[in-house]
């Protein structure tokens, strides 16, 4: 009897230890993930002299919003240091936003058409198309940048957001097509057939039946396109030159490579650049996971 009790005690004790070890691991991972980001975030609320203190003050002594406010009022107090980048931050946010949303929208339209045909039709050249889409996903951007630059220059579209959007669409479309193809394939055909038999045209069927059903896939595709466009630096730095089209990563890189910049302002611009993708990531967490793993894991 006592032996049995001792054994069950032993088992409980073991389970507790295991649970504590797991939680410890979880805490460790959390610190790894959050610590660098938190330091950036905290710096953005610091006064410059506090941020430059040795040893560092981990928690801002008297937190301030002045870094954030100076972006709205670039001509004011701190115009001497990093002023160019300050002026460019808000237009940069706006440009990034337009480029990213534009990329997402065009992606959805073109991606839906191509993805649908690949999901539903068997035709000559289907394999070749799939190969081209897959292959163009593999091309490194750096390999295309010179001819792209020359082409866009020839069109007179340097420093125009249109050129950026067109470029981003080209680079995100293959992934969008694959993603949507997989989504459409998972939707039963009977749904479409019923709508067509009820007298819908193909377009009506798409808009009223198929697309609403595939909504999670569409959102996921739009989000990935948005993020790729938002994150891009290589194309943006080559194809843009003024606030007419400079995007946020270019502005942030300008801060980071400028030694005269105030570090707290630099950190703040970084935080601003992170907000939109972070909000999207949290909002659509489950869709991201689904999207990233579609095609990765077989059903």
């Amino acid at each position: 009897m006592t032996e049995v009790i001792a054994q069950s005690h032993m088992r409980h004790w073991r389970q507790d230890v295991r649970l504590i070890a797991l939680m410890l691991g979880g805490a460790l991972v959390t610190v790894y993930i959050l610590a660098p980001f938190c330091w950036l975030l905290l710096s953005s609320f610091m006064h410059e002299q506090d941020a430059l203190s040795v040893p560092p003050h981990w928690i801002p002594k008297n937190p301030t919003l002045s870094n954030y406010l100076s972006f709205f009022n670039p001509s004011e107090t701190r115009a001497v240091v990093g002023s160019r980048a300050i002026e460019q931050t808000l237009p940069g946010m706006l440009n990034s936003f337009i480029a990213a949303v534009g990329t997402a929208v065009v992606n959805l339209v073109l991606g839906t058409l191509a993805g649908y045909s690949l999901a539903r039709f068997k035709f000559r050249g289907r394999g070749a198309l799939l190969g081209i889409y897959l292959g163009s996903r593999m091309l490194p951007g750096i390999a295309l940048i010179v001819p792209l630059y020359l082409t866009i220059k020839a069109f007179g579209l340097l420093d125009h957001l249109v050129a950026l959007i067109a470029t981003y669409v080209t680079f995100t479309l293959p992934f969008t097509i694959w993603l949507l193809k997989n989504y459409f394939q998972a939707i039963p055909r009977s749904l479409e057939e019923a709508a067509l038999i009820d007298g819908c045209t193909w377009l009506q069927m798409m808009v009223k039946v198929l697309l609403p059903t595939a909504l999670p896939g569409l959102i996921a595709a739009a989000m990935f396109a948005f993020m790729t466009a938002w994150n891009d630096y290589l194309f943006a730095v080559i194809l843009t030159s003024t606030t007419a089209s400079k995007t946020m990563p270019v502005v942030v890189a300008g801060f980071a490579t400028d030694v005269t910049t105030e570090r707290t302002l630099m950190a703040t611009s970084g935080v601003l650049a992170i907000i939109p993708p972070l909000v999207l990531a949290f909002l659509f967490q489950r869709l991201i996971v689904q999207g990233l793993t579609s095609g990765a894991v077989k059903d």
Binding site: M23, F37, M248, V252, A256, A281, Q285, I288
Partner: peptide, 29 residues
């Protein structure tokens, strides 16, 4: 384990950070 859901959500943070900002953040660190 308790808190697993939170860690699963937080893991998205580094993923959402643009590489340029990531570089700038580590330069600062």
């Amino acid at each position: 384990f308790p808190g697993r859901g939170i860690v699963r959500t937080l893991i998205l943070v580094p993923w959402a950070i643009p590489p340029v900002v990531n570089g700038m953040m580590w330069q600062w660190i």
